[in-house]
Computed example of a mutant assay.
Amino acid sequence: MKQTLPAVALLALALSACGDRSPAPAAGPETDARTPQAADPAPAGSPPVQAAGTDAAPASAHAPGTNIPQVVDGVITFDGFGPAAFGGTEEDVRMSWGNDLGDAAPSEPGGCYILKPQPIGTTDYRLGFMIEGDRFVRIDVRNEGYTAPGGGKVGMDRAEIERLYGGRVEASPHKYVEGAQTLRVAEGDKALVFETDAAGKVTEWRIGVPPQIDYVEGCG
């Protein structure tokens, strides 16, 4: 399957490509205009550029076995995913992602289901968009490439989460994992929830609206 970046990531790449529009130098006596010239080196830190006429995305662009970009910051907010706002439709989410999200559907009208980037290779997933009541209500993240609003990420420890979010963290024991914690940060009518393991490391996080943000079992 051809893999491409989500629409929001493609927009960022397109904007970065609009920087230098200086005209190319005219061919001179020592330069044959028909001879290809070497491209200017890319600035340090620039994303890898796909060669013209090729279909494959750069090998480093996606997490292994998925079409999820390895590093995307700022696309997930308390409002939603890019232009897809919480409370919007499934189609809003699909358009914002800009790639295959599978064919999940509710078992009954208005039921809960999760759109997942394809292919995932296993029954697990590292990014999911929850739909319930025909509305986009939550994002689940198990991918350390995505940063939560405020700076939290998978792999951080509880102390760092508490430092990032000040006195806003409401901690409680995990429902299923002994010694693990659930760290909840409220933001108006939305919330951000980090789950840790028994060692205090964040294993996943989710963001969205009540009551779905507090579903421990997801749609289960």
Rank of each mutant, 00 (worst) to 15 (best):
V202Y: 01
G167Q: 06
R168Q: 08
V154S: 04
R168L: 06
I207V: 08
G167T: 09
V202H: 04
E170Q: 10
E187Y: 04
K153N: 10
T196S: 03
A198P: 03
K175V: 13
K201P: 06
A199Y: 13
L164W: 09
K201Q: 13
F194G: 12
M156F: 00
A186P: 12
H174R: 07
F194R: 05
H174C: 10
G179V: 14
A159S: 06
A171I: 01
E170P: 08
E178D: 02
V185H: 03
T196I: 03
L192N: 05
A199C: 11
I207N: 03
D189L: 10
G179H: 07
H174Y: 07
G152T: 03
V185D: 06
D197M: 02
E160V: 00
D157N: 05
I207L: 04
V185P: 07
L183N: 10
I207Y: 01
E160I: 02
Y165A: 10
V193N: 11
E162G: 11
G200V: 02
V169T: 02
R163Q: 15
R158T: 09
G167L: 04
L164C: 14
K153G: 07
Y176F: 15
E204Y: 06
I161D: 05
V177N: 15
F194Q: 12
A199W: 13
Y165H: 13
W205Y: 11
L164R: 13
P173T: 02
E204T: 10
K153S: 11
P173D: 01
R158D: 00
A159N: 10
G188H: 09
Q181A: 03
G166Y: 05
A198M: 04
D189T: 08
A171N: 01
L164S: 14
L183T: 02
I207A: 08
A198C: 01
D189W: 00
S172P: 13
I161Y: 05
G166H: 10
L192M: 07
A191H: 01
G166S: 08
R184H: 09
A186R: 13
A180R: 09
K201D: 12
V169Y: 03
E204A: 12
H174A: 12
A186M: 10
V185I: 13
G155D: 01
A198E: 07
W205T: 04
K201C: 06
A186K: 14
I161Q: 06
L164M: 14
A199G: 14
G200A: 11
G188E: 07
M156K: 00
V169W: 07
A199I: 14
Y165T: 11
V185W: 06
V154L: 05
G166A: 08
A191E: 06
I161A: 05
V202R: 00
E187D: 06
R206G: 08
E162P: 15
A186Q: 12
I207S: 08
M156C: 00
L164N: 14
D197T: 02
V185Y: 02
L183V: 05
G208A: 09
